[in-house]
């Protein structure tokens, strides 16, 4: 758990972060969102003490961070930044092994861990372990960055616009990957972005920041339904909210399940239970269908969802 109590950061006379109070529960993904210069990155960098705070206190699992050795503090916090910051003179494997090596793990344990992480992030160890960062694509490099942050199994993950510099398709993939990994490892995550859609997709709770203050700290659904101010309302997009709400809910919520799963025909157009309602509606609109079958992860047909129900209850 991370707690910020009345945390303030000044740069000279300007106040970058102004008396911020924020509690991030263990295992949740808290996304700090706001336009550039709103203090979200500054807030993140104060958590691992890259920037000392001017006033207030920051507690990690109940302990005041100013009293802790900054190196020890950071070794227990994975850190992923935009532009990766991979070490260009080290191979991918050595980059991932950085923190375990600092912690002086035995060699075999490090090798096994690197292997495990590369597989978790969908990088083939045989082809990629001995490459250098400049031989990777942007998406691959960012995966290595995430693997490096997870290497020593830290309790906390700090991510500063990690997917900001990759193309839209790669970003989408990395976001899905992040959701999948988060389901497996459950790290307490603080994620900074300026992209509200990314925030809505990844967050358990979103903290909207403006001019160094937190304007609203709530679940994605509540941010959309009950924006606290005009600023939040314009950030989430006034007119677009209906569809955004739909994209938060999985198809599972509104489908009519079959009594027992049916085996699927091969090549059936698969809409999964985990897909969101917005996607389901889009499929139906495009194919001009009143309803569409839903499949589970094993590819069995488990129910159907109708256009009518999505429109009535979706948002």
């Amino acid at each position: 758990m991370i707690e910020l109590r009345n945390v303030t950061r000044r740069f000279g006379d300007t106040v970058a972060v102004d008396r911020v109070n924020l509690t991030i529960e263990t295992g949740e993904v808290c996304v700090l969102v706001g336009s550039s210069g709103c203090g979200k990155s500054t807030t993140l960098r104060m958590i691992n003490h890259l920037l000392p705070h001017s006033a207030g206190e920051i507690l990690v699992d109940g302990e005041d961070t100013t009293a802790m050795n900054p190196q020890q503090l950071r070794l227990n916090m994975g850190y992923v930044i935009q532009g990766t910051g991979l070490f260009p003179h080290w191979t991918v494997a050595r980059n991932i092994a950085m923190v375990p090596r600092l912690l002086k793990w035995p060699r075999q344990r490090i090798d096994a861990r690197v292997d495990e992480l590369m597989k978790l992030l969908d990088l083939d160890p045989a082809t990629h372990a001995h490459k250098y960062p400049q031989q990777l694509s942007g998406g691959q490099a960012q995966r290595v960055g995430v693997a490096r942050a997870l290497a020593a199994d830290p309790n906390i993950l700090l991510m500063d616009e990690p997917f900001g510099a990759v193309d839209a398709i790669t970003r989408e993939n990395l976001q899905l990957e992040m959701l999948r990994i988060q389901r497996q490892v459950r790290k307490t995550t603080v994620f900074v972005t300026h992209d509200i859609d990314e925030a809505l997709k990844l967050a358990s709770r979103i903290a909207v920041m403006d001019q160094g203050r937190i304007i609203q700290h709530d679940t994605p659904e509540n941010i959309l339904r009950r924006p606290a101010s005009d600023f939040v309302e314009s950030l989430v997009g006034k007119q677009d909210r209906g569809l955004k709400l739909m994209s938060l809910r999985p198809v599972r919520d509104l489908m009519t399940p079959h009594g027992s799963p049916k085996p699927s025909r091969p090549g059936a157009d698969v809409l999964r239970e985990d897909d969101n309602l917005r996607l389901a509606l889009s499929v139906m609109l495009w194919q001009d269908l009143p309803q569409v079958a839903v499949f589970n992860a094993r590819g069995e047909e488990t129910g159907v969802i109708t256009r009518e129900r999505i429109i009535q209850e979706g948002a």
């Binding site: 960098r45 910051g85 991979l86 070490f87 260009p88 600092l102």
Partner: peptide, 23 residues
């Protein structure tokens, strides 16, 4: 040196001496 590299090294827990010598 790319500032992101230094930032990552420090942010992941290297001491100033380790950043200097290893990176």
């Amino acid at each position: 040196i790319n500032p992101a590299v230094r930032e990552a090294a420090t942010g992941m827990g290297m001491s100033p001496l380790q950043v200097l010598v290893r990176v």
